[in-house]
């Protein structure tokens, strides 16, 4: 190891919010993440695409340590990801996550879902938490559903509540793990519109998705993954019109021909 590389490691660029360095992970014999290097700057919207089983969801889940990693280094806002305990919980509060299957708390109303983290993690007082929750629910267009239970809402509405729940924590970065994959086609747009608004407002976002339209219109950068590796990174226009790797060409030819 040379001194130069040590010095270089110690001084990250000021605006790097999420930095992954040679991250490896195995599921048993499957090497699901192979030497992943990825840097996401503040305010950037990164869309991760790729075939099933390429490791893109796993990548997304490692960023708030819902999946542990075998080796490598993940930093958020300059701080290394804590392994467990209170420090990890604090970090997770700063990283919003939206899941494919919404995962709203089924025994709590929509409003309570959005208030819970504020009350129990941020220790906000109740009145303030409710105000913020209601304004976020209005912002994602489900303000009138505040007192219903998740099971009474459509999938699109549930996912928008889930986005509000994550936003209520005031996260530095939002992770979206295939947010529209479990939705009926007619509900996909209402969720994508909320996400596009978020992107326009300057939220840092990592979005794992199959929605190429969203990638084209909202992403600053497209990351293409296959077989546990990042195969290609490019701005959307360049990636979709002129992919460099054969793997990406093959993938795009299969999905863009309909």
């Amino acid at each position: 190891m040379t001194e130069v590389s040590v010095v270089k490691d110690a001084v990250p660029a000021a605006d790097d919010l999420v930095v992954l360095k040679s991250v490896n992970k195995h599921f048993g014999a499957l090497h699901v993440l192979q030497d992943i290097d990825l840097t996401i700057t503040r305010g950037e919207v990164v869309v991760v695409i790729g075939p099933s089983g390429s490791g893109k969801s796993t990548l997304c889940r490692t960023i708030n340590r819902l999946e542990s990693i075998d080796s490598g280094d993940i930093r958020i806002d300059g701080k290394p990801l804590p392994a467990e305990g209170k420090a990890l919980a604090r970090l997770r509060a700063d990283v919003g996550m939206v899941f494919q299957s919404f995962n709203l708390f089924a025994h709590k109303t929509v409003l309570e879902n959005v208030m819970l983290g504020q009350l129990k993690v941020r220790k906000t007082d109740k009145k303030q938490a409710e105000e913020k929750a209601r304004s976020l629910l209005d912002r994602v267009g489900v303000g009138t559903q505040a007192d219903k239970y998740p099971a009474q809402l459509s999938g699109g509405q549930q996912q928008r509540v889930a986005i509000a729940r994550a936003l209520a924590m005031g996260p530095k970065v939002m992770l979206f793990d295939e947010p529209t994959s479990a939705l009926d086609p007619e509900m996909i747009n209402e969720v994508l519109e909320v996400m596009q608004q978020l992107a326009r407002d300057g939220m840092t976002m990592v979005v794992v998705t199959h929605e190429m339209g969203f990638a084209r219109s909202a992403a600053n950068r497209v990351v293409f993954m296959a077989d546990g590796r990042i195969v290609e990174e490019a701005v959307p226009d360049q990636f979709f019109s002129n992919p460099r790797s054969d793997r990406a060409k093959d993938f795009l030819s299969k999905i863009l021909h309909h």
Binding site: N64, L66, K86, A89, R90, L91, R92, A93, D94, V95, G96, M97, F99, S101, F102, N103, L104, F105, A106, H107, L116, G117, K120, V121, A162, R165, A166, M169
Partner: peptide, 30 residues
């Protein structure tokens, strides 16, 4: 109780005890 709900609870920064006490056990009891 779907595993996803416990994950979502951890993702907003709740501790293990809070996830159990606020999300998992209330639904498990019912």
């Amino acid at each position: 109780v779907p595993v996803g709900q416990a994950e979502a609870a951890r993702a907003i920064g709740l501790s293990f005890a809070q996830v159990l006490g606020l999300i998992v056990l209330p639904q498990a009891f019912r």
